[in-house]
Write a protein that binds this DNA or RNA. Structure first.
Length: 417
RNA sequence: GUGGCUGUAGCUCAGUGGCAGAGCACCAGGUUGUGGCCCUGGGGGUCGUGGGUUCAAACCCCAUCAGCCACCCCA
């Protein structure tokens, strides 16, 4: 009888069990393959980062920082965070690791867990996994188009169909202030009618007013950022669009895409999936973030990138029926009939030279062991009793055909080859 | 932060006041060394927790905790 309630995983996180891992592996390997095909190199950054990196990089007024950050003090009293996204850390590593002194742009990608303490629900987790990719150190709009193309190709390689690209430009430090003012001029008179969140946004981050679903009716007539872009931003945006057109990548211009992180400038985009139940339809997003480097105290450096969610992508693969065959846990199962631990372990070792092999050390009936062999999906079973162990032979059974023959241990490698 | 729904076996769940159940999983047997289909049996339950009502509570009431879903935001 248990002493108390069984310990379960903490809220909003989950295990990715062996049955699901093959689909994850397909998604991850496709990500690596496509990124590397475009000349991007993998990097890993720490999951813990100094709190300043995220507060100054992502922006203190964003939901991600203001409400969702896992923030804690380490035993030495330093304030740390569990990274909520990968871009700020990647840019930090770019400088600290001297990648800014190599060929530019540095093309980098990262696959790993991120942490956001919001309320969990379908498709939304407190530990989520992202594939993110960045081109750092050059401001060509061709790189904006390139990173979009990488993400686009990744979804296509995975066999995903219902993905759409939403594209916008949100200007830069030069033209955004004017637009910001225009937004304020438009929204200020409406203030009494706005929802509580929007009244706060009005003071803190007016761009995010466009994101509000509750005040949809006001968003419709709000001024458009694209009307306020400066010449440079306008030219850059046109360049991105021409490159996407030329690449045959379809997109929808969506002036309401403003992104939830402060560091974006100019190009902003999101990938949506026609939501299959639930509102968590964003598969990824990104854009240019020329201001991030200075925000975290490094020299001004242009960069562009995206982050995509593996959790939702894998879920959508399943929804779309993308087939991922699950390989057998072990191709060979060694089944001793009786207490024959050493001989069984030895036979296992022999088989492993050529095939993945597990050994059944249980004391159950032979019938029960054969049943598990069947459920494991093993292709062969090597059975032996005491007499056979003494003679150093096994009965090698092929589960598919049911054919079985006696094989000496020394010939097992050939028999399984 | 706000709302809705749900907590019963390892898992998925049925059970609306009167003996705590099913399917799956697990073990054994049917078959004296041999899997899949089938059949039989077995082990396994503080009915989330605490209190209340009642002759009697998994069921009704109160509280509490947890989970899920949704708003919001995002991947």
């Amino acid at each position: 009888m248990p002493e108390s309630q069984p310990v379960r995983a903490t809220r909003g996180v989950r295990d990715i069990l062996p049955g699901e891992r093959p689909a994850w592996r397909v998604a991850e390997q496709a990500a690596q393959a496509v990124a590397e095909r475009y000349g991007y190199q993998q990097l890993e950054t720490p999951i813990i980062e100094p709190v300043e990196l995220v507060e100054r990089g992502v922006g203190e007024a964003t939901d991600v920082v203001a409400k969702e950050l896992y923030r804690f003090q380490d035993p030495g009293g330093r304030w740390l965070v569990l990274r909520p996204e990968g871009t700020a850390g990647t840019l930090r590593a770019y400088f600290e690791g001297g990648l800014n002194q190599g060929p530019q742009p540095a093309r980098l990608y990262l696959i790993g867990p991120m942490f956001r303490h919001d309320r969990p629900q379908a498709g939304r987790y407190r530990q989520l996994y992202q594939f993110s990719l960045e081109a750092i150190g050059e401001d060509s709009p061709a790189l904006d188009a390139e990173v979009i193309e990488v993400a686009w190709t990744w979804f296509r390689d995975l066999g995903m169909k219902g993905v759409s690209l939403q594209l916008n430009s949100i200007g830069d430090g030069k033209c955004r202030p004017a637009y910001r003012q225009a937004l304020l001029d438009y929204y200020r008179p409406l203030q009494p009618e706005l929802c509580a969140d929007c009244r706060r946004r009005l003071e803190v981050n007016p761009l995010r007013l466009l994101d509000c679903k509750a005040d949809n009716r006001f968003v419709k007539d709000a001024p458009l950022i694209t009307e306020y872009l400066c010449d440079e931003c306008r030219t850059a945006f046109a360049g991105v669009r021409r490159l996407l057109d030329d690449a045959g990548i379809e997109y929808r211009l969506n002036p309401r895409i403003v992104r939830g992180l402060d560091y974006y400038t100019r190009t902003a985009f999101e990938f949506w999936h026609e939501a299959i139940g639930g509102q968590q339809n964003a598969l990824g997003g990104g854009g240019r973030y020329d201001g991030l480097a200075t925000a975290i105290g490094w020299p001004a450096t242009p960069a562009v990138g995206f982050a995509t969610g593996l959790d939702r992508t894998v879920a959508m693969m399943k929804e779309e029926g993308v087939a991922v065959p699950a390989p057998a846990a072990a191709e060979v199962l060694v089944v001793p009939d009786g207490p024959l631990l050493e001989p069984a372990a030895r036979v296992g070792r022999i088989c492993r030279a050529v095939r993945s092999t597990a050994v059944d050390y249980s004391q159950r009936s032979l019938k029960a062991k054969m049943r598990s062999a069947n459920r494991l999906g093993s292709r062969w079973v090597a059975v032996m009793n005491e007499v056979e162990a003494a003679r150093e032979v096994v009965q090698l059974r092929e589960m598919g055909s049911g054919e079985q023959r006696e094989v000496p241990w020394r010939e097992l490698a050939e028999a399984l080859a």
